[in-house]
Computed example of a mutant assay.
Amino acid sequence: MHQTPVCRRIVLLGAGRVAQHLGPALWRAGHAVTHIWSRTPASAAALAAQVPGAVPVTSLALPAADLYILCVPDGAVSAVLATAEFPPGALVVHTAGALPLAVFAAYPAVRGGVLYPLQTFSAGRSIDWPTIPLCVEAATAADQELLLQVACSLSQVVELVATPQRQALHVAAVFACNFTNHLLGIGHALLQEAVLPFGLLEPLIRETVHKALAHPPFTVQTGPAVRHDAATLARHEAMLTAHPSWQQIYKQLTASIQGQQEPQPSNNELPPRL
Protein backbone atom coordinates (compact mmCIF):
# COMPACT_ATOMS: atom_id res chain seq x y z
CA MET A 1 0.00 0.00 0.00
CA HIS A 2 2.85 2.37 0.91
CA GLN A 3 6.60 2.40 0.46
CA THR A 4 8.70 0.33 2.84
CA PRO A 5 8.77 2.31 6.11
CA VAL A 6 12.02 4.17 6.71
CA CYS A 7 13.58 4.95 10.06
CA ARG A 8 12.19 8.18 11.44
CA ARG A 9 13.67 10.29 14.23
CA ILE A 10 10.85 10.68 16.73
CA VAL A 11 10.48 12.71 19.92
CA LEU A 12 7.81 11.68 22.41
CA LEU A 13 6.20 14.30 24.60
CA GLY A 14 4.59 12.59 27.55
CA ALA A 15 5.44 9.40 29.40
CA GLY A 16 2.03 8.12 30.43
CA ARG A 17 0.24 4.93 29.42
CA VAL A 18 0.06 5.68 25.68
CA ALA A 19 3.73 6.65 25.51
CA GLN A 20 4.76 3.65 27.62
CA HIS A 21 3.32 1.34 24.96
CA LEU A 22 4.02 3.46 21.89
CA GLY A 23 7.68 4.26 22.59
CA PRO A 24 8.94 0.66 22.67
CA ALA A 25 6.66 -0.23 19.72
CA LEU A 26 8.18 2.52 17.60
CA TRP A 27 11.69 1.30 18.45
CA ARG A 28 10.77 -2.31 17.59
CA ALA A 29 9.38 -1.03 14.26
CA GLY A 30 12.81 0.38 13.41
CA HIS A 31 12.38 4.04 14.34
CA ALA A 32 14.76 6.07 16.47
CA VAL A 33 12.97 7.48 19.49
CA THR A 34 15.66 10.03 20.23
CA HIS A 35 14.19 11.98 23.15
CA ILE A 36 11.37 11.64 25.66
CA TRP A 37 9.98 14.61 27.57
CA SER A 38 7.62 14.51 30.51
CA ARG A 39 6.60 17.12 33.05
CA THR A 40 7.64 14.44 35.56
CA PRO A 41 11.37 13.84 34.92
CA ALA A 42 11.33 10.45 36.68
CA SER A 43 8.63 9.25 34.28
CA ALA A 44 10.64 10.33 31.24
CA ALA A 45 13.72 8.57 32.62
CA ALA A 46 11.78 5.38 33.36
CA LEU A 47 10.35 5.25 29.84
CA ALA A 48 13.69 6.11 28.21
CA ALA A 49 15.18 3.12 30.01
CA GLN A 50 12.73 0.93 28.07
CA VAL A 51 13.57 2.45 24.66
CA PRO A 52 17.17 1.89 23.51
CA GLY A 53 18.83 5.12 22.46
CA ALA A 54 16.19 7.43 23.94
CA VAL A 55 17.33 10.34 26.08
CA PRO A 56 15.04 11.78 28.75
CA VAL A 57 14.80 15.59 28.66
CA THR A 58 13.31 18.15 31.00
CA SER A 59 13.42 21.12 28.62
CA LEU A 60 10.75 21.85 26.02
CA ALA A 61 13.41 23.42 23.78
CA LEU A 62 13.26 20.41 21.51
CA PRO A 63 15.93 18.97 19.20
CA ALA A 64 15.43 18.35 15.49
CA ALA A 65 13.35 15.29 14.55
CA ASP A 66 11.14 14.01 11.75
CA LEU A 67 8.12 13.68 14.00
CA TYR A 68 6.97 14.87 17.42
CA ILE A 69 4.21 12.81 19.05
CA LEU A 70 2.14 14.33 21.84
CA CYS A 71 1.17 11.57 24.28
CA VAL A 72 -0.31 13.90 26.88
CA PRO A 73 -3.89 14.22 28.20
CA ASP A 74 -6.28 15.96 25.82
CA GLY A 75 -6.53 18.97 28.11
CA ALA A 76 -2.74 19.43 28.11
CA VAL A 77 -2.21 19.44 24.33
CA SER A 78 -2.76 23.17 23.86
CA ALA A 79 -0.56 24.04 26.85
CA VAL A 80 2.31 21.91 25.53
CA LEU A 81 1.94 23.39 22.05
CA ALA A 82 2.04 26.87 23.53
CA THR A 83 5.10 26.14 25.68
CA ALA A 84 7.26 23.86 23.56
CA GLU A 85 9.93 25.28 21.28
CA PHE A 86 9.72 23.15 18.14
CA PRO A 87 12.08 23.65 15.20
CA PRO A 88 10.31 25.77 12.54
CA GLY A 89 8.03 23.64 10.38
CA ALA A 90 8.10 20.65 12.73
CA LEU A 91 5.52 17.93 12.16
CA VAL A 92 3.66 17.54 15.47
CA VAL A 93 0.83 15.06 15.99
CA HIS A 94 -1.50 14.29 18.85
CA THR A 95 -2.83 10.85 19.73
CA ALA A 96 -6.32 11.86 20.89
CA GLY A 97 -9.63 10.60 19.56
CA ALA A 98 -11.71 13.64 20.47
CA LEU A 99 -9.40 16.56 19.61
CA PRO A 100 -9.79 18.08 16.13
CA LEU A 101 -6.90 18.61 13.74
CA ALA A 102 -7.78 22.30 14.06
CA VAL A 103 -6.18 22.35 17.54
CA PHE A 104 -2.96 23.12 15.65
CA ALA A 105 -4.41 26.15 13.83
CA ALA A 106 -3.23 28.54 16.54
CA TYR A 107 0.36 27.39 16.06
CA PRO A 108 1.27 28.13 12.40
CA ALA A 109 4.97 27.47 13.02
CA VAL A 110 4.28 23.72 13.17
CA ARG A 111 2.58 21.25 10.84
CA GLY A 112 -0.19 19.41 12.64
CA GLY A 113 -1.44 15.86 12.37
CA VAL A 114 -3.12 13.00 14.19
CA LEU A 115 -1.97 9.47 14.97
CA TYR A 116 -4.81 7.98 17.01
CA PRO A 117 -4.50 4.40 18.27
CA LEU A 118 -7.96 2.94 18.88
CA GLN A 119 -7.15 0.95 22.00
CA THR A 120 -7.22 1.20 25.78
CA PHE A 121 -3.78 1.23 27.38
CA SER A 122 -3.04 -0.02 30.89
CA ALA A 123 0.14 -0.67 32.83
CA GLY A 124 1.20 -4.29 32.80
CA ARG A 125 -0.88 -5.19 29.75
CA SER A 126 0.81 -6.11 26.48
CA ILE A 127 -0.53 -4.65 23.25
CA ASP A 128 -0.70 -6.59 19.96
CA TRP A 129 0.21 -3.58 17.82
CA PRO A 130 -0.29 -5.22 14.39
CA THR A 131 -4.02 -5.59 15.21
CA ILE A 132 -4.57 -2.09 16.63
CA PRO A 133 -6.47 0.32 14.34
CA LEU A 134 -4.42 3.47 13.78
CA CYS A 135 -6.28 6.53 12.51
CA VAL A 136 -4.23 9.09 10.59
CA GLU A 137 -5.02 12.68 9.62
CA ALA A 138 -2.83 15.46 8.28
CA ALA A 139 -3.24 18.77 6.49
CA THR A 140 -1.01 17.95 3.51
CA ALA A 141 -0.49 14.92 1.30
CA ALA A 142 3.23 14.76 2.18
CA ASP A 143 2.57 14.74 5.93
CA GLN A 144 -0.22 12.24 5.44
CA GLU A 145 2.14 9.91 3.60
CA LEU A 146 4.79 10.16 6.33
CA LEU A 147 2.24 9.39 9.03
CA LEU A 148 0.84 6.49 7.01
CA GLN A 149 4.34 5.03 6.73
CA VAL A 150 4.89 5.30 10.49
CA ALA A 151 1.44 3.87 11.20
CA CYS A 152 1.94 0.97 8.77
CA SER A 153 5.22 0.13 10.46
CA LEU A 154 3.25 -0.48 13.65
CA SER A 155 -0.10 -1.89 12.55
CA GLN A 156 -1.78 -3.79 9.75
CA VAL A 157 -4.98 -1.79 10.33
CA VAL A 158 -4.39 1.80 9.24
CA GLU A 159 -7.08 4.20 8.12
CA LEU A 160 -7.27 7.80 6.95
CA VAL A 161 -9.92 9.26 9.24
CA ALA A 162 -10.94 12.92 9.16
CA THR A 163 -11.77 14.77 12.37
CA PRO A 164 -15.61 14.40 12.30
CA GLN A 165 -15.37 10.64 11.69
CA ARG A 166 -12.65 10.21 14.30
CA GLN A 167 -14.71 12.07 16.89
CA ALA A 168 -17.70 9.85 16.11
CA LEU A 169 -15.42 6.83 16.41
CA HIS A 170 -14.26 8.07 19.80
CA VAL A 171 -17.84 8.41 21.08
CA ALA A 172 -18.59 4.89 19.82
CA ALA A 173 -15.45 3.63 21.56
CA VAL A 174 -16.55 5.19 24.85
CA PHE A 175 -19.86 3.32 24.63
CA ALA A 176 -18.24 0.05 23.57
CA CYS A 177 -15.30 0.18 25.99
CA ASN A 178 -15.63 2.61 28.89
CA PHE A 179 -19.37 2.30 29.48
CA THR A 180 -19.27 -1.46 29.00
CA ASN A 181 -16.48 -1.72 31.58
CA HIS A 182 -18.53 0.38 34.02
CA LEU A 183 -21.50 -1.95 33.57
CA LEU A 184 -19.23 -4.94 34.16
CA GLY A 185 -18.08 -3.20 37.32
CA ILE A 186 -21.68 -2.92 38.50
CA GLY A 187 -22.19 -6.62 37.77
CA HIS A 188 -19.02 -7.42 39.72
CA ALA A 189 -20.17 -5.37 42.71
CA LEU A 190 -23.64 -6.95 42.73
CA LEU A 191 -22.12 -10.43 42.72
CA GLN A 192 -19.81 -9.46 45.56
CA GLU A 193 -22.84 -8.42 47.59
CA ALA A 194 -24.44 -11.79 46.81
CA VAL A 195 -21.18 -13.58 47.77
CA LEU A 196 -20.83 -15.05 44.27
CA PRO A 197 -17.71 -15.17 42.07
CA PHE A 198 -17.51 -12.82 39.11
CA GLY A 199 -16.18 -15.74 37.05
CA LEU A 200 -19.73 -17.06 36.78
CA LEU A 201 -20.38 -14.31 34.23
CA GLU A 202 -17.33 -15.04 32.07
CA PRO A 203 -18.96 -17.49 29.59
CA LEU A 204 -21.92 -15.13 29.22
CA ILE A 205 -19.68 -12.10 28.64
CA ARG A 206 -17.62 -13.94 26.03
CA GLU A 207 -20.72 -15.17 24.17
CA THR A 208 -22.24 -11.68 24.22
CA VAL A 209 -19.10 -10.15 22.71
CA HIS A 210 -18.74 -12.93 20.11
CA LYS A 211 -22.34 -12.42 18.96
CA ALA A 212 -21.98 -8.63 18.88
CA LEU A 213 -18.91 -8.98 16.66
CA ALA A 214 -20.58 -11.50 14.36
CA HIS A 215 -23.92 -9.66 13.92
CA PRO A 216 -25.26 -6.11 14.16
CA PRO A 217 -25.54 -5.92 17.97
CA PHE A 218 -29.09 -4.56 18.09
CA THR A 219 -30.29 -7.63 16.16
CA VAL A 220 -29.03 -10.06 18.80
CA GLN A 221 -30.28 -8.15 21.84
CA THR A 222 -31.48 -10.43 24.63
CA GLY A 223 -32.96 -9.98 28.07
CA PRO A 224 -36.17 -8.93 29.83
CA ALA A 225 -36.17 -5.43 28.30
CA VAL A 226 -36.39 -6.63 24.69
CA ARG A 227 -39.05 -9.17 25.74
CA HIS A 228 -41.03 -6.48 27.61
CA ASP A 229 -41.02 -8.78 30.62
CA ALA A 230 -42.60 -6.28 33.01
CA ALA A 231 -42.59 -8.60 36.03
CA THR A 232 -38.87 -9.33 35.80
CA LEU A 233 -38.03 -5.69 35.14
CA ALA A 234 -39.97 -4.63 38.22
CA ARG A 235 -38.22 -7.28 40.32
CA HIS A 236 -34.81 -6.13 39.18
CA GLU A 237 -35.61 -2.48 39.85
CA ALA A 238 -36.76 -3.36 43.36
CA MET A 239 -33.52 -5.27 44.00
CA LEU A 240 -31.55 -2.14 43.05
CA THR A 241 -33.29 0.13 45.57
CA ALA A 242 -30.13 0.29 47.69
CA HIS A 243 -28.23 1.58 44.64
CA PRO A 244 -30.37 4.40 43.21
CA SER A 245 -27.79 5.46 40.61
CA TRP A 246 -27.54 1.89 39.29
CA GLN A 247 -31.31 1.60 39.38
CA GLN A 248 -31.52 4.72 37.22
CA ILE A 249 -28.99 3.25 34.76
CA TYR A 250 -31.08 0.06 34.63
CA LYS A 251 -34.22 2.04 33.82
CA GLN A 252 -32.50 4.19 31.19
CA LEU A 253 -30.92 1.20 29.45
CA THR A 254 -34.24 -0.64 29.53
CA ALA A 255 -35.93 2.33 27.87
CA SER A 256 -33.13 2.59 25.29
CA ILE A 257 -33.37 -1.13 24.42
CA GLN A 258 -37.12 -0.91 24.09
CA GLY A 259 -36.75 2.17 21.90
CA GLN A 260 -34.78 0.15 19.34
CA GLN A 261 -36.44 -2.13 16.84
CA GLU A 262 -36.65 -5.59 18.36
CA PRO A 263 -34.86 -8.50 16.65
CA GLN A 264 -37.16 -10.35 14.30
CA PRO A 265 -37.36 -14.14 14.80
CA SER A 266 -36.48 -16.16 11.72
CA ASN A 267 -37.54 -19.72 10.81
CA ASN A 268 -40.22 -19.56 13.52
CA GLU A 269 -37.51 -19.33 16.16
CA LEU A 270 -37.98 -17.32 19.31
CA PRO A 271 -35.65 -14.39 19.96
CA PRO A 272 -32.48 -15.30 21.86
CA ARG A 273 -32.93 -15.23 25.62
CA LEU A 274 -31.09 -14.53 28.78
Rank of each mutant, 00 (worst) to 15 (best):
W129G: 00
T180N: 07
T219M: 12
Q119A: 11
L184S: 05
L191A: 08
L148Y: 11
T208Y: 05
R111T: 00
T120E: 07
G223C: 03
T232Y: 11
H182L: 13
A172I: 05
Q149F: 00
A230Q: 15
L134W: 02
H243V: 02
L118K: 04
H188C: 10
A172H: 03
A194Y: 03
A231F: 04
V171N: 02
E137G: 11
L147P: 12
R227G: 11
E137I: 12
R166D: 03
S153F: 06
L160G: 00
Q144C: 14
V157F: 00
P244F: 07
E145H: 10
R166H: 06
N178G: 10
S126Q: 12
F218A: 15
P217H: 10
C177W: 03
T219L: 14
C135G: 01
Y107S: 04
A242K: 13
T222A: 12
A151E: 04
L233M: 14
Q247H: 03
V174N: 05
V158I: 08
L191S: 06
I127C: 10
T232W: 10
H210T: 13
L200A: 13
P203I: 08
P224Y: 00
W246R: 00
V114M: 03
L196F: 04
E237D: 14
Q192F: 03
Q167A: 05
F175A: 09
